[in-house]
C-alpha cells in the first residue's frame, strides 16, 4: 500500500505539491489525474525518493523508499521512459538493474518477452522510439515482481494496440492484488483504465472516488423535446430549473431531474416527445473541478477573435 502523508514540495518559489494526503489501496487501479503541471510527477518523484519532500512524507508499506533494501522488488516504477543510458542495450540495462537488487537474471528475458521487446533486446536503447522506451520502462518496473507499481503518463507514445495492451495489463496487475498507481492528464484514458481516481490541481487535492461516484455526484443534464418548448422552458425556470440550451431540436435543462421535468410537464398539459437524462462525462467533471487550477490554460477561440 502507498500512503501520501501531508506531502508538500517547494521548488524555489513554486509550491509544486501542497499538502497532499491520500492512500492508494491494493487490488484496484488508481488513477492520478490532473492537468499539466499539477504536481503528479513531483509526487511520483518524492515517492521514489528522487526529490526530498519539503514537508510530510510518502511511504510504501510503511517504509520510506530510501529505507527499502532492494526497492525494485517492492516497488516498480516507470517515471521517464528516456531515463536510461543510451549506449546500453535493453537487455544490459535490465541486467544492471537486476544485479543491483539481487533479482535473478532469468527475469530479464521474461520481462523483455512480456513487454514485447524481446526482438530488440540487444539493440542500443538510444535508438528506441518513445513507444519502445515505454515498453522497456514497463519491463524495468516489472523486473522485481513488485507489489506496488507506479506509472507516470504510461500511454504517452504508445500506439492504439499498446494502449489497449497496457490497460488490460494494469487490470491484471491489480487483480493479482497489487497496488497500481497510474498518473495521466487524459481523463478519457483514466475513465476506461482506472477504478479509483484521485484528482489534483495546482498541487492540491481536489477529489477522490470511483469513476461512477465522480460522474454521479456531478450534476447531469436532461434533454427534452416537447410540443411547446417556450412554455415548458418558462415553467421549468419558475421551478428552479436552468435552461442551458434552447435549440430547435429541444431544451437542455440543468438542476432538475427527468422525473421532475416529466411531472411538471404532465400537470401543465405539455406533451413530452423525448426526455433523455445526460450523465456528465468524467471529462466534464474533470474540467469543472480543475477549471480554476489549470496551470497552463489556453485562450478560448472567442478570445482570439476579439483581439483581431
Amino acid at each position: 500500500m502507498l500512503k501520501i502523508d501531508h506531502l508538500s514540495k517547494r521548488y524555489k518559489d513554486t509550491l509544486a505539491v501542497d499538502d497532499l494526503d491520500f492512500e492508494v489501496k491494493p487490488g484496484v487501479v488508481t488513477g492520478f489525474l490532473g492537468p499539466n503541471g499539477s504536481g503528479k510527477s513531483t509526487t511520483m518523484r518524492v515517492i521514489l525518493g528522487l526529490d526530498h519532500p519539503t514537508k510530510g512524507r510518502a511511504t510504501i508499506n510503511g517504509k520510506k523508499y530510501a529505507d527499502i533494501k532492494s526497492p525494485l522488488r517492492e516497488v516498480g516504477a516507470l517515471l521517464d521512459a528516456k531515463a536510461v543510458h543510451p549506449g546500453r542495450s535493453a537487455r544490459n540495462h535490465l541486467r544492471a538493474l537486476a544485479v543491483s537488487n539481487k533479482i535473478a537474471l532469468s527475469r530479464v528475458d521474461e520481462v523483455l518477452e512480456f513487454a514485447g521487446i524481446a526482438s530488440v533486446a540487444h539493440k542500443k536503447v538510444g535508438g528506441f522510439s518513445l513507444g519502445m522506451s515505454q515498453r522497456l520502462g514497463i519491463a524495468g518496473a516489472l523486473l522485481g515482481d513488485p507489489g506496488v507499481l507506479l506509472f507516470d503518463e504510461p500511454v504517452n507514445g504508445l500506439d492504439p494496440e499498446g494502449i489497449r495492451w497496457i490497460r488490460d495489463f494494469f487490470r491484471s496487475l491489480a487483480k493479482e492484488g497489487r497496488t497500481v498507481f497510474v498518473s495521466s492528464h487524459l481523463m478519457s484514458e483514466m475513465a476506461v483504465s482506472a477504478d479509483q481516481i484521485i484528482v489534483i490541481g495546482r498541487g492540491r487535492f481536489i477529489t477522490q472516488g470511483s469513476v461512477d461516484e465522480l460522474t454521479t455526484t456531478a450534476q447531469g443534464t436532461v434533454f427534452v423535446r416537447s410540443s411547446d418548448p417556450s412554455s415548458l422552458a418558462a415553467l421549468l425556470v419558475r421551478n428552479d430549473g436552468v435552461v442551458l440550451q434552447n435549440a430547435e431540436s429541444g431544451l437542455t435543462i440543468g438542476a432538475l431531474t427527468s422525473d421532475q421535468i416529466g411531472t411538471l410537464a404532465h400537470f401543465a398539459g405539455i406533451t413530452i416527445f423525448e426526455l433523455t437524462p445526460q450523465r456528465a462525462s468524467l471529462e466534464d467533471v474533470f474540467m469543472n473541478l480543475t477549471a480554476e487550477s489549470v496551470e497552463y490554460g489556453s485562450a478560448s477561440p472567442e478570445m482570439m477573435h476579439r483581439e483581431h
Binding site: 523508499y65 531515463a83 543510458h85 538493474l97 543491483s100
Partner: peptide, 18 residues
C-alpha cells in the same frame, strides 16, 4: 555527469536509493 545528462540517474537512484 553522464548519468545526469542522459537522465539515467533517476533510474539508477530508483534502483539504489541509498
Amino acid at each position: 555527469s553522464s548519468e545526469y545528462s542522459s537522465g539515467s540517474i533517476r533510474t539508477t537512484l530508483a534502483a539504489v536509493p541509498n
